[in-house]
């Protein structure tokens, strides 16, 4: 105990508190935000059999946050009977995206190659996004499983963005920006997104300017989407722990400031 520093107590407090509230298994109600409603409405209003590109633009590190978001969005898209074209512009998102699409596709009895397909990864996201605008088959001559593009039934007649209704970017970083700027602006395709909470403020100008149709952010966004879909998933399960962690951070800020102002009053820097 002698070796413990103040930061260790802060760490311990966060760890114990999070573990405790997670063992309580209490689900909190969340109010659905306008942004979530807009994204839900967008996917919901697309006619059946609309083509959607689902791009898994994230790394393995953010999977605890990204998975509930992607799950909720894929569940909605599959349940509405949309045709999904999965791909990844981050090498690490490749396998994660394939797994998610396969698992959720199976849940809704959707068939690989007919109802959805997974094209895999291509590097240099700007080049890949622009290249797809000219020709998707030339950018992805084969799917993730090694099937030729021309042999996959769902892809017959899909040449470029003109044949697709929207791009759904699931991102933990700034990659959605490139979808908005290079695919959205140049090829005029609608871009929607599910992003890590840390990126929400980065995308606000695009959202307000109408360059991005709508987005959900973080576990809270996932929880709101799950509520609209009527199931409790990773987002809803995490809300109590998330709220507790927020309050813990606020408490740390307050304690830190109280100590600071007391010391300042006493003349200790």
């Amino acid at each position: 105990m002698k070796n413990l520093l103040p930061r260790h107590y802060v760490f311990l407090g966060l760890f114990v508190l999070t573990a405790l509230v997670m063992s309580l298994n209490i689900k909190l109600d969340v109010e659905v935000s306008e942004n979530t409603k807009r994204l839900y409405g967008f996917i919901d209003s697309l006619p059946e059999n609309s083509y959607l590109i689902v791009s898994f633009d994230h790394e393995a590190s953010s999977i605890p946050e990204i998975k509930p978001i992607a799950t909720a969005l894929l569940k909605h898209a599959f349940s509405k009977g949309h045709k999904l074209i999965g791909l990844s512009l981050f090498s690490e998102g490749t396998l994660i995206g394939y797994r998610l699409m396969s698992e959720i596709g199976r849940e809704y009895d959707r068939k690989y190659g007919q109802d959805y397909v997974y094209l895999g990864f291509k590097p240099q996201y700007i080049a890949a996004i622009l290249s797809m605008g000219e020709s998707i088959p030339k950018t992805f001559p084969k799917d993730y499983l090694g099937n030729k593009y021309s042999d996959i039934p769902i892809l017959s007649g899909i040449e470029n963005y003109d044949d697709v209704s929207a791009v759904l970017s699931i991102a933990d970083g700034s990659l959605t920006t490139h979808w908005i700027e290079y695919a959205g602006m140049r090829y005029n395709i609608a871009v929607v997104a599910g992003v890590a909470a840390a990126m929400v403020t980065t995308y606000d100008p695009y959202l307000e300017a109408g360059q991005m149709h709508s987005m959900i952010g973080g576990l809270r966004g996932a929880a709101e989407y799950e509520k609209m879909l009527g199931y409790d998933g990773g987002g809803a399960r995490a809300m109590l722990a998330q709220t507790t962690a927020h309050l813990y951070v606020i408490l740390m800020i307050i304690i830190g400031n109280v100590i600071y102002f007391r010391n300042r009053k006493k003349g200790i820097s």
Binding site: F11, S62, E92, Y248, V249, M252
Partner: peptide, 20 residues
């Protein structure tokens, strides 16, 4: 990778206490 990334949660809490 996810756990290395999750360490940031602890450091964010610590930074909130010590530097914010």
């Amino acid at each position: 990778q996810a756990t290395v990334f999750s360490l940031l949660a602890f450091f964010v809490a610590s930074a909130s206490f010590r530097g914010f």
